[in-house]
């Protein structure tokens, strides 16, 4: 399993996603892409849904991809990767390809939680041998910060503006990781750009399984979250340390929380650093909403701990 040194060595050994892309300063996405691709020893083929990563990595006349890369549209990265993998399997059966090739789809939260969910579900259900990575920055950042079903409650977005009627987004975010778990695929993980070793470990572990492997990776967007550009890692770390974004994996149905904050911080610590939640810190009503937010985080964490206890297959300690 890699440590920080191996991650650095991998960066020197192979550059599958190069500098020179036009993602914003402080964007978390390239770190996620490089860490995932470098954790795969085999040749890879990448399918990329429409989104920030796609437009900023393939700007004329260059490309940041040192691997075969296909972009077609917004809703269909999972379907495209399924087609690639199915054709590869057929060619392998026919003896026309002999080596192992890995098929990786990258899509944002809009392209996965919303418009891409149908294609994702079909690909998971059919059991294609692929890796699907949702780079989750919690809104449609590429088109100018519209809310998605990954946007947390109370976050301001251009289509869930803060006003007298609504406190930012009125709804809870969808728990996509659990939706994917319900497809009973071999490997599901939640990860964060703040914990790259954890992410690399998860990708490596997943490769031993045949079938769909899914990763939901929290990736700070300084533009949409309205946070300082130099703070992407700190922001994501706070999301993990406050238990807002638990790091866990579900391996063949068995839950394991891969990082448990020893002294979890109140979720307020994560909220208060982001402009999209600024309105929660203005008045009493905001305080109530933060308390509700905290209660939801606590509830989800407890559920997760219970799932780990019930479904870990390991006896609870002490």
């Amino acid at each position: 399993m890699p440590n920080i040194k191996t991650l650095a060595q991998r960066e020197e050994k192979q550059v599958r996603f190069t500098p020179g892309h036009t993602l914003c300063a402080g964007c978390a996405e390239p770190m996620v892409v490089r860490t995932v691709l470098n954790a795969i020893p085999d040749p890879v083929v990448v399918a990329n849904a429409t989104g920030c990563l796609e437009v900023a990595s393939s700007r004329y006349p260059g490309s940041a991809w040192n691997v075969p890369w296909i972009h077609v549209a917004f809703e269909n990265a999972a379907a495209v990767i399924a087609g690639l993998e199915a054709a590869y399997k057929a060619l392998k059966r026919a003896g026309k390809i002999t080596r192992t090739i890995r098929f990786v789809a990258f899509a944002g939260d809009g392209g996965t939680y919303d418009i891409g969910l149908q294609a994702l579900s079909g690909t998971l259900e059919r059991g294609h041998d692929i890796l699907y990575v949702c780079i989750n920055n919690e809104a449609y950042m590429n088109t100018g910060v519209q809310r998605s079903s990954a946007t947390p409650r109370c976050a301001a977005a251009t289509t869930s503006p803060v006003g007298e009627e609504i406190p930012g987004k009125p709804q809870d975010r969808k728990d996509l990781t659990e939706i994917v778990v319900s497809h009973h695929i071999p490997y599901v993980a939640q990860a964060s750009v703040s914990n790259l070793i954890d992410l690399a470990n998860k990708v490596e572990r997943s490769l031993q399984f045949t079938g769909p492997k899914f990763f939901n990776v929290l990736a700070t967007c300084p533009l949409g979250w309205r946070t300082p550009r130099a703070s992407a890692i700190d922001q994501a770390k706070l999301a993990v340390e406050t238990r807002y974004w638990p790091l866990y994996e579900v391996v063949e149905g068995k839950y394991r929380i891969t990082y448990k904050p020893k002294k979890p911080l109140p979720v307020e610590e994560w909220l208060k650093t982001q402009g999209r939640f600024r309105h929660l810190f203005r008045d009493e009503k905001g305080k109530e909403r933060i308390a509700e937010f905290q209660a939801a985080v606590d509830r989800h964490w407890e559920e997760l701990v219970k799932k780990e206890q019930c479904l870990s297959g390991v006896q609870e300690q002490g």
Binding site: T143, G144, Q146, T158, T159, S160, P161, G163
Partner: peptide
Amino acid sequence: SEIMEHLAR
């Protein structure tokens, strides 16, 4: 998108 954003408000 501006049409949508304007009407969202």
